[in-house]
Simulated scan of single mutants.
Amino acid sequence: MGKVLAVCMSPAKGTAKKDVGTAELVENHGLKGDAHAGTWHRQVSLLSHGKIEAFRARGAEVDHGAFGENLVVDDIDFSSLPVGSIFRSGDIVLELTQIGKECHSGCEIFKIMGDCIMPREGVFARVIHGGVISAGDELYVQ
């Protein structure tokens, strides 16, 4: 079990995501109002808080959402889970569809640090069943 620490969104692609605290996850779409939501396999992005903290310890000054993640969760190492893993939070059901993604060429974090954790630590999921998710909610790996 993990705890959701941040719920992040951006209204347009190419802009940083900001922690909004609470958002609605829409079935087969993603976070309502997020620029990256849609009917594809990367509807929601998740990143482990511990991985962000380890990156910060190397000198990176990054806020929640800086890597493009929608959900920051403590106590779950997402990159160690297989594709097909199921996550639950209340009525919400997410299915892990992809581990990592290549950074885009203009990744500011990579330019500054020479590294980015999203390609190896971030994961993506599709929304099987929607609902409202908030910082403080528990997230379970089924």
Rank of each mutant, 00 (worst) to 15 (best):
S80C: 07
H104E: 11
H64D: 14
M113K: 10
I76N: 01
V73E: 00
V83I: 15
C103W: 06
G100P: 04
M1Q: 11
F55E: 03
I117P: 04
G65V: 07
F67C: 04
V123R: 01
V44Q: 02
S134P: 07
D63G: 12
E102T: 13
A66K: 04
H36Y: 15
K18N: 12
L47Y: 00
R120Q: 07
G2S: 10
G106D: 13
V72Y: 00
I133Y: 01
L139V: 12
G100H: 09
A60E: 08
V132I: 14
F124C: 06
K13I: 12
L139F: 07
A23K: 02
S45H: 09
I109E: 08
V141P: 00
L96Y: 11
R88S: 06
E61Q: 13
S79V: 07
V62W: 06
S85P: 06
R58A: 14
S48W: 02
D77Y: 11
S85I: 08
D115N: 12
A66D: 10
C8Y: 06
S79F: 09
A23E: 05
S85F: 08
E24G: 02
C103F: 02
S89H: 02
E24R: 12
A54L: 10
G136I: 09
G106F: 10
L31T: 00
G68S: 10
C116P: 10
T15K: 14
G2H: 02
I117E: 03
T39E: 15
F124V: 00
I99G: 05
G33I: 01
R56H: 07
E102I: 12
E138G: 14
S80K: 11
L96H: 09
A6F: 10
F78K: 03
E69P: 08
Q142H: 11
I99A: 09
G59R: 07
P82Q: 09
A37G: 11
F78W: 05
L81Y: 02
